[in-house]
Nucleic acid binder design. Structure first.
Lengths: 142, 142
DNA sequence: CAGAATCCTATGAGATACTG
DNA sequence: CAGTATCTCATAGGATTCTG
């Protein structure tokens, strides 16, 4: 990363100059501690997006989440919920009933990720056929 | 996959019914082999989004990518590029010069992911301060 | 230059059993 | 019910060395 511009974050809206000279200095400086990466790496695990999308439809209790996402282990569900709570995306509410029940819901911040996440999911949905096809072609050629 | 409603994919645009009854049947059926997850899990690794955003500004050679992303190892750069190529998001062109040079560029499909990815990056950029703050609060309370 | 091959370690994540 | 505590294994991913 250069001087002056050190630590600039990811900016995918940045356009290449026409002609796109290949080997110049980086279009955007890169910072290993980039806050965008810090946040995205957390979301990029196996379960976070799935849980966020699920809670996007409304609050659910622990066991209900397990039923909706049958192939997650209690351990990972607990851990992922904790991480999301720590990041302020999910709120955890304990109801002191006889057998305790705990409700998870998106925070107001958590709700705001639904839209960008939704665009990505839509893209994946629209593109997965083309991607699968590309994989077939690639694997056949290798 | 599936007949009828089985295997319905992720749909974050789905809204909860008003009142949001907590413990009903899942709002959307969940499929471990969901194509959306299949695609997103691939993008969700440590380097894919970074490389896609970088190439979004224009094609780059292998060594140039390494300079832009200094903390990636050759091994992971090669592997991630291969995976992206396999998925049809990146095209690899070899120029038979004396020391061989290889150019990587987004395919037309690859370009289409820039927009949804950009929204997520923008969200991360706007939210990282709030997230960091939430982490401080959470860690102080624990 | 652009990798391929190999080695090694840290972590992600499942399975199971226990608890308030 | 909603976890916690272990144990274990598979994989992601870094460092290093070799090659056309």
């Amino acid at each position: 990363m250069g001087q002056g511009d050190a630590g600039v974050t990811i900016d995918p809206t940045r356009k290449a100059k026409s002609g796109g000279l290949p080997d110049r200095q980086p279009v955007w400086a890169y910072d290993p501690l980039c806050p965008v990466r810090d946040v995205l790496d957390r979301i990029g695990d196996k379960w976070s997006t799935l849980i966020l999308c699920t809670l996007g439809a409304g609050p659910l209790r622990f066991s209900a989440l397990q039923r909706v996402i049958p192939d997650i282990s209690k351990r990972m569900l607990t851990q992922t919920l904790r991480d999301l709570e720590r990041d302020g995306l999910v709120a955890r509410t304990v109801f002191p009933t006889k057998p305790p029940s705990v409700e998870y819901r998106l925070t107001s911040l958590g709700v705001t990720i639904l839209e960008p996440l939704g665009f990505l999911v839509q893209w994946a949905d629209r593109s997965h056929a083309e991607i699968r096809q590309a994989r077939l072609v690639f694997d056949a050629a290798s």
